[in-house]
Design a protein around this nucleic acid. Structure first.
Length: 266
DNA sequence: GACCAGGTATTGC
DNA sequence: GCAATACATGGT
């Protein structure tokens, strides 16, 4: 394992806050390093002062790819200042999540993962996703499995999906996969459309409601204005962040992540 | 054994 | 339109 990439990055980035957070489900912390799979490549990453070390990806554009995935070129310090200015009660939560970035995940993986997430808990979501990958994805470079393509998923039977424990969500998963295959859902379109239209588009999928649509747009297409409201966030909006001005701001999604991690940690 | 989890579809008023 | 309810599953 000598294919080591070194990426310069500022102190304003935290691997742990970013990858061990509710926005993704396939990363695991082992001591000081974090390992997982994205773009069909399995890597291990750790932080060393102002350098990020990534082990396991020997492809030519590896550094650029991970730089983009981890969103290292976005100025989160200024985003944080902006949302805290708008909502002073966010000061503590944003400090606790210091260095959290919103990933540039594969949009299909985000859509599928958050369909699975509905009325479900995080450990179980992770388990279902891993079993889905083992069931029908290609082996990843450097071990483990890729995330399965929509083509592969669309061909699964309800029985196969039942066998990995995804419960009543099985038909939703197949419907979403088919919609992507048939280009009824186009991620390149969703990336460009005004947010309300992008949302409408996703809501046409059976099994995708407002929360999953917002998660898909925020985590899969980096639409940072989306503010997914799950049970935890709704609780926060009733209590500690009652009548917040955050919803509707251009970086509401980043604030949402701060609040999500904060509320859950209490 | 009831209750909960990064909700949604369906039904009934 | 809005409030209730069923839905699979596994953990507490």
């Amino acid at each position: 394992m000598n294919n080591e990439i070194i990426i310069e990055c500022s102190s304003d980035f935290s691997l742990k806050e970013t990858l061990i957070s509710g926005q993704c489900f396939r990363w695991t912390q082992k001591g000081e390093s974090i390992s997982g799979t994205a773009f069909s490549v399995t890597v291990e990453m750790y932080r060393k002062d102002n350098e990020l070390v990534i082990i396991g990806d020997s492809s030519e554009n590896a550094a650029e790819r991970w730089r983009n995935y981890l969103d290292l070129d976005t100025d989160y310090a200024s985003i944080k200042r902006e949302v805290v200015a708008l909502e002073p009660r966010l000061a503590e939560a944003s400090n606790r999540s210091a260095g959290l970035h919103i990933l540039n995940q594969d949009p299909w993986e985000a859509l599928c993962s958050f369909i699975i997430s509905q009325n479900n808990n995080i450990p179980r979501i992770r388990g279902i996703i891993e079993r889905l990958c083992e069931l029908c994805a290609e082996p990843a470079v450097n071990g483990g499995y890729a995330f399965p393509t929509p083509q592969k998923v669309s061909q699964l039977t309800l029985e196969q999906l039942a066998s990995i424990g995804c419960g009543y969500r099985a038909p939703y998963i197949i419907a979403a996969a088919q919609a992507v295959c048939e280009d009824k859902i186009s991620f390149s379109e969703l990336r460009e459309l005004p947010i309300e239209q992008a949302r409408e588009n996703l809501l046409s999928l059976h099994g995708v409601g407002p929360k999953v649509a917002d998660c898909m747009l925020l985590y899969g297409l980096h639409r940072l204005e989306c503010f997914p409201k799950d049970v935890w966030i709704k609780r926060a909006l009733e209590g500690e962040f009652k009548d917040t001005a955050l919803v509707g701001s251009p970086y509401a999604g980043v604030a949402q992540q701060y609040i999500f991690e904060y509320i859950r940690a209490i």
